[in-house]
Write a protein that binds this DNA or RNA. Structure first.
Lengths: 353, 353
DNA sequence: ATGAAAGCGCTAACAG
DNA sequence: CTGTTAGCGCTTTCAT
């Protein structure tokens, strides 16, 4: 079946009769009449090879259809140029923006992201961290500061930079690029209070595994308590990922159970939009009868009518700052753990009067 | 600074005074009193090692904080357990769902996704494919059937399964899991015609690099022509990624330029929602004065009021089918290139009367 | 600027 | 079930 080269046994060879071995640097070297070492140098941008030799080598490589083999390079050089990243969900515009910020910041130095989704589950995160660390990434970026004991241990022992994001963990493992979700919720509370509202509800933040959401809800409760207001108007929205549908259902419950509410702070803009749509279905005027706010500054918050008051946590910048931090640490520019605090921005829009 | 072990020179060691070498299988073997080969087997689920030996080895490994090194395994075994995937954008719920479908289908066999975003640019796709193939993935999944010549060549020569998705390329490189974007647009045209509308516009599909969108627009033009209707009501929406904001602006132009339109088919639900919001701002009743349709069955299409008529292309299933295909090919169950055609489903909702 | 030798850490292949 | 030997394809190191 595969007469030559045991390596190709059972391997996929589209439309090829014989399984010819994939060419290696040695093959390129032979064809170009140089040593393998020179070929290796010719494939590194900053290595010293004469222009003519380099051109000849690339020509030979093209002729053979040679593709550089990172797996061998990784082992020998003990560098993978991977940065491992875990996010709760890939299907979330906020986290996707953080990944973009990371990716853009890292690709200039040839670092590639190895992405995993925890699906809002710390056990899954632990499994994922284990899998990712086997690949020997140069650094690892995780979302949030809550991990299983083994997850924490894996991260601490990894001997690579660890960056926790989207949060300000009380016991950081290494570096942090985040913000206070509780403070953001407090700012929204104060926003409504400043506009004369006191009967304020919080929608969501109950989802198991969504620690950022839980922190926002806790921040709401703390802020309401500190202002001497009723902090018990908490509307659960169900399991993560909590989104528009859940927002609509939660608003239905809120309107039924607490018709006197003047404002509702939702755990995210997606929930807020779902809540808004339910208000519109029921003829509840926003913001005249009920003010609404979300979180995240998702695109929909700016586009929907009325536009949604929200908080922009600068997800792209979180990624960009994390990337810059990684580069500094790998360069040796920075040695001590850093905590970079992002200042989220409250955006007052039409959904709050 | 790093007295022992040249490997650790300049490497990051959080809070460690000396740079001790990362333990290897040989270290674990020594501590457990077995050969490295037995340690290797103990780390493979299906290898034959006595239960007692396996337990002892894992105990020793834990004690040393040993982490299996995939880079060495990858080189020696010529397997990476990577599947490379390129999508136009990571920040798009449809593509994110396809990635989830892939990821879920592959993780059972221990395959991990290596993800890259092309940002709707074939040159970027070419670069990305080159980068990804160096990592020696077991298979590669790309979005769409348009590639640069070098991109095509790289894929064809890769000697791994290639799967093009979200499209039905006329010249497939290998396998295909997709659907006809043109047919989907035609179905929407027929949906409106069946409801008595003839002055129908298409919004978007002009974005450079969004081939699926272009196919939908082309399908609209072809279908309108085939039905003897005016196919010139084409509203550009700007460069990819085209989203809600662009939809709102495009609708503003449509209402100004073609106030007699009865229906508008938008290149995506995001554009359709933006268009809807503009209608609401202007007091244009949807669907009474103008019917709307989108594409993609994004969550917002079901939640917004009025809900949006759309087409569900089953993005999750595209990923799941691609994953199943990859497993079959790697198993040797399938040898010939497959073309799996997904049947998108038209969902008639409140935005079209 | 180029080359020779050695070896990264694991596992295929082949014993026993 | 366990061990021995060799080597995956590159790059570090040290020459010249």
């Amino acid at each position: 079946m595969a007469p030559l080269g045991a390596r190709a046994c059972g391997r996929y060879r589209a439309g090829m009769s014989a399984a010819r071995k994939t060419p290696t640097m040695a093959d390129v070297a032979r064809l170009a009449g140089v040593s393998p070492m020179t070929v290796s140098r010719a494939f590194k941008a900053d290595a010293s090879v004469s222009a003519a030799t380099r051109a000849a080598i690339h020509h030979a490589a093209d002729e053979l259809g040679y593709v550089f083999d990172s797996t061998a390079s990784n082992l020998r050089s003990q560098r993978t140029d991977f940065v491992a990243v875990t996010v709760p969900s890939i299907n979330n515009a906020n986290f996707a923006e953080t990944v973009r910020g990371l990716s853009d910041g890292l690709k200039a130095r040839g670092l590639q992201i190895l992405l995993g989704a925890t699906e809002y589950n710390v056990e899954e995160e632990e499994r994922l961290i284990g899998q990712l660390l086997r690949r020997r990434p140069e650094a690892i970026v995780v979302t949030g500061g809550r991990h299983t004991p083994r997850g924490r241990r894996l991260l601490r022992n990894a001997a690579i930079p660890v960056i926790e994001t989207w949060d300000l963990p009380s016991q950081p493992i290494g570096h942090v690029v985040g913000f206070s979700n509780a403070d953001a919720a407090r700012d929204l509370v104060d926003h409504f209070i400043a506009r004369g509202m006191t009967r304020i509800a919080f929608v969501g933040g109950d989802a198991q595994g969504d620690d950022r959401g839980a922190d926002r809800r806790a921040g709401f409760v703390a802020a309401m308590g500190a202002r001497g207001l009723d902090a018990t108007r908490l509307i659960p929205a169900g399991e993560a990922p909590v989104s528009m549908r859940e927002g609509a259902r939660a608003m239905a419950r809120l309107l039924d159970a607490m018709p006197d509410c003047e404002a509702a702070i939702c755990v995210s803009d997606l929930v807020a939009f779902g809540a808004l749509s339910e208000c519109q279905r029921r003829g509840v005027a926003v913001p005249q009868r009920l003010s609404l706010a979300g979180f995240g500054d998702y695109e929909i918050a700016a586009v929907c009518a009325p536009s949604l008051t929200t908080v922009n946590p600068f997800p792209r910048e979180i990624g960009a700052r994390a990337a810059a931090l990684i580069l500094d640490v790998l360069d040796g520019t920075r040695r001590e753990p850093a905590t970079i605090v992002i200042a989220p921005k409250l955006l007052a829009r039409a959904s709050s009067r």
